[in-house]
Structure formats: C-alpha cells, structure tokens
Nucleic acid binder design. Structure first.
Length: 496
RNA sequence: GGCCCGAUGGUCAAGUGGUCAAGACGGGGGCCUCUCACGCCCCAAUCGGGAGUUCGACUCUCCCUCGGGUCACCA
C-alpha cells in the first residue's frame, strides 16, 4: 500500500518556479560525444535561464554496473565546466540523487497507479527473445484482464511479478516537444511497458518520470532515441495528474564508419572517441566543448568561437537541429588549432613542454623557445614530439634534402654555401636572431643569390629535416652556437 | 516489417513564399615567405525525386526515395 503521508511529504519538497534541468546518465564508464552534448545543452538551458542544473545517476540496471563509472561522469562534467547545483556529491532539497537510493519510492508510485487502474501486475515471467522470428507483436497481456482480487492474492502469496503500465487501446496521444513540435501516436501502438521489474527496481522509463517530477524538472533534455517513448511518459504524467515538463529531444551524433563510409551512431563498441579519448589525443577541453555545442545547434550568425559563458548567454532552442549530425574530426581539429593559437605564449609553452620533452631530452634546449616556434604550427598537442625531435640530436639524413627547386638549391651549391657561411657564423659576435639574420642576408647579397639559397641549406644542415617548425635562424638560436656550428660542419662533411 | 522523426554542397549549417541560397571545415589555386605553418585573396561544390497550392517555391501540401530512431524485466 502506498504510504500517503510519505508521498505528500515528497511532493511538498518539489521546488517551484524557475528552470530546473537535469543530466541523468547511467554510469557506463564512457562519456561519448553525444552524451557530452546532451549534458552541455541541458546545462546551457539551465544557465541561460538562470536556473538550476542537477545531476542524477541512473543506476537501476544492476547487471551493468561498472566500477569507477560515476567518477568519469563527475570528472568530465567538472573539466568541461558544467557545474551542477544539486547531485549525489553536493546534495540538494530533493535527494537522494542516485536512483538505487530511491528504490522504495518508485514502487509506491507504481502501487498508486495499480490502485487507480493505470497499471497492473503481470505474473508471466520473462519474455524470451522473439526477434528472431521477426514477430514483434506480443498481443494483449493475459494479466491485464486479471481481477484485482486474484492479482492481490498472488502478490500476497509471494509470487514474482512485474508492474506494467496499462495503455489505452483506443484513440491517440499527442505530446509536444520543444524541438520537434507536436507528435501524435496511436495508442494501440503503445506497449504495456514494464514500470517495476521483478527485482523491485524501476525501469529507466518509470524512474525517469517519477524523479523528474519529484525533482521539479521543468525541461527534460535527452537524446532523440527516447522520442518514441515520450507518449508513454506523457500518459504517466497524466495518470498521476502531474504537470508535463517541456521535452527537449536532441538528435543523435553520428560518425562516419571507416569501413563502410556510412554514417552511424557513435558507440563505445566501435571505438568512437569519448571525451577522455579526445583529451588524451591532444585536444583542449574548451575546443571540444565549443565544437560539440555547434554540432546540432547553430547560433545563427557567422561567429563560431564561443566560450562556455558566451554559449550560456546566447543558447536558444530555436537553433537545435532535428536531424542527426556527423561528428567531423577535421573540424574539431580546426577548433583546437584556433584555441591553441589564441593561448598566451606562456600558457602555450607550459602546456606544450611535456610534449616537447617527450622527444627533446637534451637539457641545453629551452622548451619555451621551441614552444614559441610551435604555437602557430600545432593543431593538437600530440603531434608535437615528432615535429621537434631533431632538436635533440641531428638525425641521419639524405643529402638529397639539399635539393629544393623553389629555393634554387642543389648539392654542389649547398656545399659551397655551407663552406662560405661557416666562417661567417664562427665569427658572429653575438648569437641572436637579429645578428644572425643580418649576417646571413648580407652573405646572400654579397654572393648575389636569393636569401633562400643561403637559408635553405643552412636549415637542412641544422635540422636534417625537409620540414621544420621555424626557419634556419630560429633553429640556430634554439640550438646555440656550438651545436649549430657542429651540425654545419657535419653537413659539409656529408656533402663533400 | 509496424510506428515515429528527419532530408540545403563531402561535413557542420544560415534560410521560415520573391536572396546572383550566408558562413565555417575539408578540397583546389594564388599571395606572403628562410622550409612548413600562420595570415590574406580567389575558385569548385548544395536545396533527393515527382505531383500539386501560388503571380512566384529551398521555404506550404501530398506521394516516392533515402536516412535516423524505436518495437527489452537496457538505459
């Protein structure tokens, strides 16, 4: 029997007035980009309206518990700046915020529904998979017509059962979604879904409605995969006589499958990147957040770069897209590069140093100076080590590198140039960019050749690489006088 | 398969009856230049198809096609 007083007490705790949204993940240990986007939109709706953002953990599936999974959620939300006002860790007026800690209550609400004829006990036992036959129609549930007396008696006798929602058989149900508009479904299409499982725990669908109501959620934001369940939720709200929240269904995030070339939904199973994978891969959190915000939502103007507070300021449901969006790693990379370029040189140097040190162990090389060469040429941090390894030690290289058409260089000419510039550099009174640049351009002028004809061979000799971050002068300064001269002599020996 | 939803360049998208159909990524070309990158300039590329409604459809309606979702004691 439902404890009327307890239910009334719960009702009395529901906050009124003001927007309240919630992110309600199930702890799977994996926060993929689609989840992150849902969390972000949910947070943005709340913050835009000056409302509350709540975190609730939906862990009613005892068979799928994953250790540490909740931590991934906390960590991701925190790093992304999606702070919550209420949740398992910070508490709040309508707790607890973990569904398994609320277990008793769902059953009571289900009993209310049974009493009022909106639900019934079903003693049929688990349905085995029938998909193989291709037949999805299960027909009417025999328990639906069972008398209350028999149902009560069997329940009292300890027989195992589930509680199912009793769907109307006639007419249709229309609900409203903020992004999709009105959606109508024939009631006969609706299955008598399970509300309470035989283990006594509620299904996601039921717990969701109860919790959203008891927590005073005004905007229910979730993935579009729940769109087809929405009429059932609506019927539940009506059965209880509760106010229906604003539904906001977000289309899914797709990814282009490597093998088939087709778009498909992102999933852990296919190894699609989670938030943490992206960070691991050298992406910056604000860039990821910015990109994800624009994946399936458009602010309308031409601007694309927005900070989180700016997003909260301008976020508007009007721009939310109805169709699925394909996650584009190239565009994310572009956003990341934009964010890297926008960093202060100091911040960039600090962030880049560990990556530089992965390949440059030589203590004589100053990572800050290397970083300065890198900032405009880095799209993501993980590509740094391979770009700068030549600073650590001159790699073995092919003399053919000295041949460059555009710079009008070849092997004999390069040898001559190196021989000519070696004494000049040995005699340089100072070893800084200004001095070296002046010295080398004068040398080029004296020899009546283009700057590139001097610079190119020098850069090759200094780096052993066809492509380098920074030019000959910059590299020489990072390497220092002794090492630079040593590498030039090495180049002369190689070409001789 | 039933039901629900969707459809503007390769991708993200603006657009809500009258536009030479924005912009961005990616692609191509050029400039700058001590390689590469940055930066700047230019180019190619889109309204899935067919019927209507209308003086006029990317915009409205219907059909087709295609795409997505869903049909669990999973969330």
């Amino acid at each position: 029997m439902p404890d009327q007083k307890r239910l009334e007490e719960l009702e009395s705790r529901i906050p009124r007035g003001g927007v309240r949204t919630r992110f309600a993940p199930s702890p799977t240990g994996y926060m993929h980009v689609g989840n992150l986007r849902t969390a972000l939109y949910t947070w943005l709706i709340a913050r835009h309206a000056g409302g509350k953002f709540i975190l609730r953990i939906e862990d009613t599936d005892q068979g799928r518990l994953v250790d540490g999974a909740v931590d991934v959620i906390y960590r991701t939300l925190e790093q992304c700046g999606l702070d919550h006002d209420e949740g398992p860790d910070v508490g709040g007026p309508v707790g607890p915020y973990i569904q398994t800690e609320r277990r008793g209550l769902y059953r009571e609400y289900a009993e209310v529904l049974v009493e009022n004829g909106f639900a019934y006990r079903c003693f049929c036992g688990k349905t085995e998979s029938e998909e193989d036959s291709g037949d999805f129609d299960r027909g009417p549930d025999p328990c639906r017509a069972m008398s209350r007396e028999e149902s009560d008696a069997r329940a009292r006798a300890g027989e195992s059962y589930v509680i199912r929602q009793k769907m109307p058989t006639q007419g249709s149900t229309t609900f409203h979604d903020a992004v999709y508009g009105d959606i109508t479904v024939e009631n006969k299409e609706l299955e008598d879904q399970i509300l309470i499982k035989s283990d006594g725990l509620p299904t996601y669908n039921f717990a969701n409605v109860i919790d959203d109501h008891l927590m005073g959620i005004t905007h229910v934001v979730r993935g579009a995969e729940y769109l087809s369940s929405a009429p059932k939720y609506d019927l539940l709200y009506r059965a209880f006589g509760w106010e229906v929240p604003t539904y906001v269904h977000c289309s899914s995030v797709m990814v282009t499958d490597r093998e088939t070339g087709q778009a498909r939904k992102m999933s852990k199973r296919h190894g699609d990147p989670s938030y943490e994978d992206l960070i691991q891969d050298g992406y910056l959190t604000p860039a990821v957040v910015n990109y994800v915000a624009l994946l399936g939502w458009s602010p309308g103007g031409e601007r694309e770069i927005f900070s989180l507070p700016e997003l909260a300021e301008i976020f508007d449901l009007h721009g939310v897209s109805k169709s699925p969006a394909v996650f584009d790693m190239d565009k994310l990379t572009y956003f990341n590069a934009e964010y890297i370029r926008a960093m202060t040189p100091e911040d960039f140097a600090a962030a880049a140093e560990p990556y530089i040190r992965q390949s440059v162990k030589n203590p004589a090389i100053d990572p800050a100076r290397v970083a300065a060469l890198l900032q405009q040429r880095t799209e993501k941090f993980t590509q740094i080590p391979e770009k700068v390894d030549f600073f650590d030690a001159l790699p073995a290289y092919d003399p053919q590198l000295y041949v460059h058409k555009k710079s009008k260089t070849d092997i004999p000419g390069s040898l001559e140039t190196l021989k000519a510039l070696l004494p000049a550099l040995e005699a340089a009174e100072r070893w800084d960019e200004e001095t070296l640049l002046a010295l080398l351009t004068r040398l080029a002028a004296d020899r009546q050749v283009k700057n590139a004809q001097v610079m190119y061979p020098l850069r090759i000799a200094l780096s052993g690489r066809a492509v380098t971050p920074g030019g000959a002068v910059e590299i020489a300064c990072v390497l220092g006088r002794d090492e630079s001269l040593r590498r030039i002599r090495e180049g002369i020996r190689l070409l001789s």
